[in-house]
Computed example of a mutant assay.
Amino acid sequence: MQVKISTLAAALAVGLITSFTAAAVQAKPHAPVEIVGTVQTQQATLKIAFESAAQQVNVRVHGVDGLTVIGTRSPVIGGTFAAGQVMTLIVNYTPGSGTSNLAVQVDGEFDGKRRSKISSFTVQNGRPTVSGTAANISVDGRGRRIAILPAQTK
């Protein structure tokens, strides 16, 4: 009986690994850009590095959980950037009470395909947070908060 249980357990494990691998392959690729930022009390300096050439690029900034962006929320509309080009943006905002977030969305045509990437920066009580979880919270295209979890390692 133990042989059958072991065989069944192995078969289940192989099935789970296969389905996990298939799900990972079907994931939507993100835009080949790197978004980094320095968050201060009421201002963020964002650097967007383009890893490949892009056309029709839109950059949007959103406040989440009470954070209000001051000025334009769409600093780039229909831009064109070369591979390796780095763009710097200054975003002024009023932080929300408690913990709030500044979300940055970059979308455009990369290698003939429309792609998007979103990053989020956390501000707590008007001060930048120091925790490592800030990069794990993001905002989807509809402004809903989502958590991005790291890949499982063996």
Score class of each variant (00 low, 15 high):
119 S>W: 01
59 V>R: 02
119 S>M: 04
34 E>T: 15
141 G>K: 13
44 A>H: 07
34 E>C: 01
137 I>N: 09
60 R>Y: 06
87 M>P: 00
61 V>M: 00
1 M>K: 08
53 A>M: 02
61 V>I: 09
89 L>R: 03
102 L>K: 02
36 V>E: 12
36 V>I: 12
55 Q>F: 00
84 G>K: 06
50 F>R: 07
95 P>N: 10
11 A>K: 03
99 T>Y: 02
149 L>W: 10
122 T>H: 03
65 D>C: 02
113 K>R: 15
90 I>R: 13
62 H>K: 08
138 S>Y: 00
44 A>K: 05
153 T>C: 00
67 L>N: 07
71 G>E: 08
107 D>G: 03
144 R>D: 13
104 V>P: 04
91 V>R: 01
13 A>E: 02
63 G>Y: 07
110 F>N: 09
80 T>C: 00
119 S>L: 01
64 V>R: 12
104 V>A: 06
111 D>E: 12
106 V>I: 10
63 G>R: 06
1 M>H: 08
144 R>Y: 12
78 G>E: 03
78 G>I: 10
69 V>G: 07
69 V>Q: 06
104 V>Y: 05
10 A>H: 02
146 I>K: 09
90 I>V: 15
69 V>H: 06
10 A>K: 07
126 G>F: 08
70 I>M: 08
71 G>T: 09
67 L>V: 09
101 N>Q: 12
28 K>Q: 13
101 N>E: 03
4 K>A: 14
